[in-house]
């Protein structure tokens, strides 16, 4: 009896209040957190505990639905990860010949630089985007020279090939530093920087006996001139690197999303537990108070008669 009256306590009280305080006009609509039927600013004589339990109940509902969403996102990320992981694994051989041929020279001295940041298409995936952005900023500062360094940020669906074309055609550069997250395992990714040199720079460095001196010993077959072959080679390397880096990044994204969503699901269930406890406790308290009121009222009546 007591518990059922507590459950629909709000409606019962509002009925009482509308009799006791007819001032509660519709123009004085109380904010939702207040007991319905009370003028704003007025101290709530009773019913506050009911209202607060109502708030807690609403809160519980929203936490529950958020938990459902994060759980679903985790499942989706897990199943996507499986596909991307295989693809990434299979693509790992593709860029290696280029690094074997030309070496890896992130510290090569260049004037016109591009920092190419590979980020994800969507959010809610842990810290992977902030890592690449921070690292890109660091590299950007590191490369400061007379010519301004340019940023190119990739992170929207299906624009990869267009972007590659755009860069190769329209932007003058000596070297591109590609910043991405290399997939290491489901829970970890490694920020990495790949360097792609422009054909002119490759030719210059190999002829002048710079960092690419070993390239001079290679015979070059095909094309009309060495420059043409180097141009094709550099473009092919760029495409291969971009392909592999975006796959690695996509893989890291799914992994990071999976662990982020897992931890937020866990957080939500913890929160739900706390809220349930709070709700039950306040309900128990209101029932106890009501019982005491009834009993003491009955006792007072008995004493009077």
């Amino acid at each position: 009896m007591a518990s059922s009256s507590a459950r629909n306590g709000v409606s019962r009280l509002s009925h009482l209040l509308s009799k006791a305080a007819p001032v509660a006009a519709p123009s004085l609509q109380s904010p939702s957190w207040q007991c319905p039927g009370l003028a704003p600013g007025e101290l709530a004589p009773f019913g506050t505990r009911m209202a607060s339990s109502q708030i807690v109940r609403n809160r519980m509902k929203s936490v529950k639905s958020i938990q459902k969403i994060t759980k679903a996102m985790k499942m989706v990320a897990a199943s996507k990860l499986r596909g991307v992981q295989t693809k990434t694994e299979n693509s790992r051989g593709f860029w290696q010949p280029f690094v074997a041929l030309m070496g890896d020279h992130p510290d090569i001295d260049t004037k016109k630089n591009i920092v190419l940041t590979i980020s994800s298409d969507r959010g809610l995936c842990g810290g992977i985007n902030s890592t690449v952005v921070k690292l890109s900023k660091g590299i950007f500062k590191l490369l400061e020279s007379e010519e301004p360094t340019k940023y190119i940020v990739i992170g929207e669906k299906g624009k990869m090939s267009m972007i590659a074309d755009e860069i190769l055609k329209n932007v003058e550069f000596e070297a591109i530093r590609m910043v991405y997250n290399k997939f290491a395992s489901v829970v970890s990714f490694i920020p990495a920087v790949a360097t792609i040199m422009a054909p002119e720079l490759i030719a210059k460095e190999s002829e002048a006996g710079g960092k690419l001196a070993q390239l001079e010993s290679y015979e070059i077959e095909g094309g009309d001139s060495k420059a043409e072959v180097l141009q094709n080679l550099s473009e092919f390397q760029f495409a291969a690197m971009l392909f592999s880096a975006s796959l690695e990044n996509a893989c890291s994204e799914q992994g990071a999303r999976m662990s982020a969503m897992d931890s937020s699901t866990r957080n939500a269930s913890e929160m739900l537990e706390k809220l349930t406890q709070k709700y039950n406790r306040s309900r128990q308290a209101s029932i106890t108070t009501e019982l005491i009121e009834i009993i003491s009222g009955a006792a007072a009546l008995e004493a009077a008669s």
């Binding site: 790992r92 860029w95 690094v99 070496g103 890896d104 992130p106 921070k134 690292l135 900023k137 660091g138 500062k141 590191l142 910043v179 290399k182 490694i190 920020p191 990495a192 920087v193 790949a194 360097t195 690197m241």
Partner: peptide, 14 residues
């Protein structure tokens, strides 16, 4: 320039 950042890895290391 980036005192708080972890030093990145490079493809030749993989």
């Amino acid at each position: 320039v980036a005192p708080n950042l972890q030093f990145p890895k490079f493809p030749s290391q993989f």
